[in-house]
């Protein structure tokens, strides 16, 4: 991505810390990092083992992350999961998850970037209160919101509708994204906008063709967060949707180790399937994550 490289003072070379001169320092560093990485990765390796072992046999006291016997039964079982009526539940739920998450991302980016732009660039009555309110909304406990949210969606006729979930998820993601984006927008010099004004650009053209392209790292992080909010959520999806064919994938993943049954093998396989898209996004966007997330906090 070749954007965000304007001459802002924030873009400076990484600070140089002199590393230890002796090779032992480097070895010690790698030993520490290797150990931490191993501890971090180990639970995931165990999940992989459980998923790849037949049935629940992967749930064994062994410390060895390599399965004794490799079988894709659990994956097959998860992917072919169907309802008693013969609906291919996995396929439906995967589609639901994908559609809802992508729609949430699009809506989330739209809502968050426009609001953040106004908060960053305009001075208007209600600006301070609005910013404060966004911050404070992060403190609202979810339990408090469940019943009212249910009633509101019902009143709006959005219960049992994917669009209802999309709107809810997008608003959940907004406050954090707005603050992050606003911080990023604040670092874009005002001169650029004035220059565009002189070039004859309208306010919207400036937003669309100058500010957004220059903020790609922060917009990418916003996209990631909106997508993640929608892709990982299951409590609301479970509460607001009635039919299993309308559920999202996480609802099913959770159900494998829910109150009724404990199917660790299927759970592990489903977890891996659910986590893969998010991990792929993280890998693709991790550079942006480092820059996009903090440029707001650290100016100059």
């Amino acid at each position: 991505m070749n954007t965000g490289d304007y001459e802002a003072p924030a873009v400076t070379k990484p600070a140089k810390i002199k590393s230890g001169k002796s090779p032992w320092g480097s070895i010690a560093t790698h030993a520490v990092l290797g150990f931490v990485t191993l501890v971090t990765m180990y639970p995931l390796l165990i999940v992989l083992r459980i998923a790849l072992s037949p049935g629940d046999s992967g749930m064994s006291p062994s410390l060895n992350p390599i399965p004794r016997e490799i079988s894709f039964d659990n994956f097959v079982a998860v992917v072919t999961n169907s309802s008693p009526q013969g609906d291919w539940l996995f396929g439906r739920q995967l589609l639901n998850s994908a559609v809802i998450s992508i729609a949430t991302t699009v809506l989330g980016i739209f809502l968050a970037t426009t609001a953040a732009y106004a908060f960053s660039r305009f001075r208007f009555p209600g600006r301070k209160a609005g910013l404060m309110a966004f911050l404070v909304s992060q403190m609202f406990p979810g339990v408090l919101m469940m019943v009212p949210l249910y009633l509101i969606l019902e009143a709006l006729g959005l219960l049992n509708a994917s669009f209802g979930l999309v709107v809810v998820y997008a608003t959940i993601a907004i406050p954090f994204c707005v603050w992050m984006l606003k911080g990023y927008f604040d670092t874009i010099p005002k001169d650029l906008e004035e220059s565009a004004i002189m070039d004859g650009a309208s306010q919207f053209t400036i937003f669309w063709r100058i500010i957004l392209p220059l903020s790609m790292p922060a917009v990418a992080v916003t996209a990631l967060f909106s997508f993640m909010t929608a892709w990982n959520e299951f409590v609301l999806a479970f509460t607001f949707m009635e039919e299993p064919t309308a559920f999202t994938l996480p609802v099913t993943v959770y159900s494998y180790v829910g109150e009724q049954s404990v199917e660790w093998g299927k759970f592990a396989a489903a977890s891996i399937i659910v986590s893969i898209p998010i991990m792929a996004l993280f890998f693709a966007l991790q550079k942006n994550l480092v820059g996009g997330l903090t440029s707001g906090g650290v100016k100059g």
């Binding site: 070749n2 304007y6 001169d191 004035e194 220059s195 565009a196 002189m198 220059l214």
Partner: peptide, 12 residues
């Protein structure tokens, strides 16, 4: 038309 002190060229 105006020329700015910082040049204000569009970096992208």
């Amino acid at each position: 038309a105006m020329v700015f002190q910082s040049y204000a060229l569009y970096p992208h």
